[in-house]
Design a protein around this nucleic acid. Structure first.
Length: 457
RNA sequence: GGGUAGGUGGCAGAGUGGUGAUGCGCGAGACUGCAGAUCUCGUUUAUUGGGGUUCGAUUCCCCACCUACCCUCCA
């Protein structure tokens, strides 16, 4: 398997540090508002990535931080006149709810920054001892002049970073590009005691403290949105590689392209933020996943209701075929298609192995679906089993097939039996009514030579 | 201004130094109580523009134009 590493700007053969064990860290959200479809894009990708590695037999530990103390949270809390922790707690919860609805469950551990204050203080202490940081009136800062490689991830020279730096209002800093490791307490802000007085962590330090605690100074994969490359990930490298003296901090930096809405950046100031919970009122999570995985993770995705609608046609085809396959009465005979099915599986794996080329993988799935539709009636029970297993393996990785809720399945079956009876008596008005009503509730019914089939859309 | 990733048919979206997937859409037919699905056949001179390298480039190089993101926690 090959993965594109942002640091080296090339696809590299994937080799974990510890055999089959893979340590993945992904930057989580700052929990000060509902999560939007841009978050969905990134986290659905990394969910799929971790599940694919598991499918390939790796033992994955996927760790994700939650920034639960931050300027934006504090500002919102102050505006509303509530405790900042009320804000972070609420939106942390909402975030988890959204992720569960999106079937993002590949994450092994969510790590809120405030659970790691001791580790953060300890790391800052070591940076100071080693001379990579200095204390000022308002906090502790990392001294980037001590880390000449600063800029290597975003491929910018230190000079160009300095030249591009905006006017710095903080005259305490030695260099405008120095960044805060610890911020001293201000009125109305949450704080923890530290050797430098009461205060709170800087933004970048939580990630390296958390990863050092769980993974040590070096690990396999670090992911996040490409907007985090600079300065966030750059600062993480400076902190971790300085404190440990070991390079590289991670072997594979993976960054997702950002999502745009009608070719425009999605943002509060644009007024075009689409929350995950809003969009899930309109579409099934599995369709959203299919749509987002139809673009390569490093490319930007452009969202519009129209493009989602187009994706729906392709997506339904897969759902329908899966449903037909499940209800197929296959013959007890020698399997004849197993080799061909395995060829599709191999092609799917090849696509995924090539830097998680999910759009190509999806095209393989589509070809496979055409193959199934064409040959299904000739399937033996072993052919059927083999095809179903393949689709279900895909679904474990991508989670693009709607899940059935067994509690209502029984009632759907009863309605379909009723419909069958009315059809036999040619009471088509009634049978069509049942079909229509089910459809209105997201259950599509079709009459096939095998009888009725149904699926969720 | 600096950095990064891109610009492929009506749409989405791969790949490749030697006339370019896959799917949607569209047209016709088969099937069908209807619907839907599926199958068969068909469908567009598609690779931003201009140079260069090459026997040959969509693929490599240069320039231009265009798009998105980042340039310090203020987006």
């Amino acid at each position: 398997m090959k993965l594109y590493d942002t640091l080296n700007r090339e696809k590299k053969e994937f080799k974990p540090i510890y055999g089959k064990r893979v340590n993945i860290f992904v930057c989580g959200p700052t929990v000060y508002d509902y999560s939007h479809i841009g978050h969905a894009r990134t986290y659905i990708f990394f969910d799929t990535f971790s599940e694919y590695l598991r499918y390939k037999g790796y033992e994955v530990f996927y760790l994700q931080n939650i920034t639960d103390v931050d300027d934006k949270i504090i500002k919102k809390a102050n505006d509303l006149g509530v405790d900042p922790f009320e804000i972070s707690k609420k939106y942390y919860n909402e975030y988890i709810q959204d992720m569960l609805k999106l079937r993002v469950n590949g994450v092994n551990l969510y790590a809120p920054a405030t659970f790691y204050i001791n580790e953060i203080i300890d790391q800052v202490k070591r940076l100071l001892e080693k001379g990579y940081a200095y204390v000022t009136n308002d906090g502790v800062y990392f001294d980037i002049s001590k880390f000449p490689e600063y800029g290597k991830l975003s491929h910018q020279s230190l000079d160009s970073i300095k030249a591009g730096a905006r006017v710095d209002i903080n005259e305490n800093k030695k260099n405008p590009a120095d960044f805060a490791l610890w911020k001293k307490r201000k009125e109305g802000e949450p704080f923890w005691p530290s050797p430098w007085g009461d205060g709170r962590p800087g933004w970048h330090i939580e990630d390296t403290a958390i990863t050092e605690f769980h993974f040590g100074p070096q690990y396999d994969v670090h992911g996040g949105g490409s907007d985090l490359i600079f300065p966030h990930h750059e600062c993480e490298i400076a902190q971790m590689e300085s404190v440990s003296g070991k390079k590289p901090m991670v072997n594979y930096w993976l960054h997702t392209g950002l999502l745009t809405v009608r070719q425009e950046r999605m943002g509060k100031s644009m007024g075009n933020v689409i929350n995950i919970r809003e969009i899930l009122k309109e579409v099934r999570p599995e369709l959203l996943r299919f749509f987002l995985l139809s673009s390569h993770y490093r490319s930007p995705v452009d969202y519009s209701p129209e493009s989602l609608d187009l994706a729906k046609q392709s997506w339904e085809k897969i759902v329908i075929s899966h449903s037909k396959l499940k209800s197929l009465n296959a013959k007890e005979s020698e399997p004849v298609f197993v080799a061909e099915i395995n060829r599709f599986r191999k092609e799917f794996e090849n696509a995924m192995d090539d830097d998680m080329n999910t759009p190509l993988a999806i095209s393989v799935i589509q070809s496979f679906i055409a193959f199934v539709n064409k040959n299904m009636e000739k399937f033996s029970n072993l052919d059927k089993e083999s095809a179903l297993t393949f689709l279900e393996d895909i679904d474990r990785i991508m989670k693009i097939l709607p899940r059935n809720d067994s509690s209502v399945e029984k009632f759907i079956e009863i309605l379909l039996d009723t419909r069958k009876l009315t059809k036999e008596k040619k009471l088509f008005e009634i049978s069509d009514y049942i079909r229509l009503k089910l459809r209105e509730n997201g259950i599509a019914v079709e009459d096939t030579s095998e009888g009725q089939i149904w699926y969720r859309i």
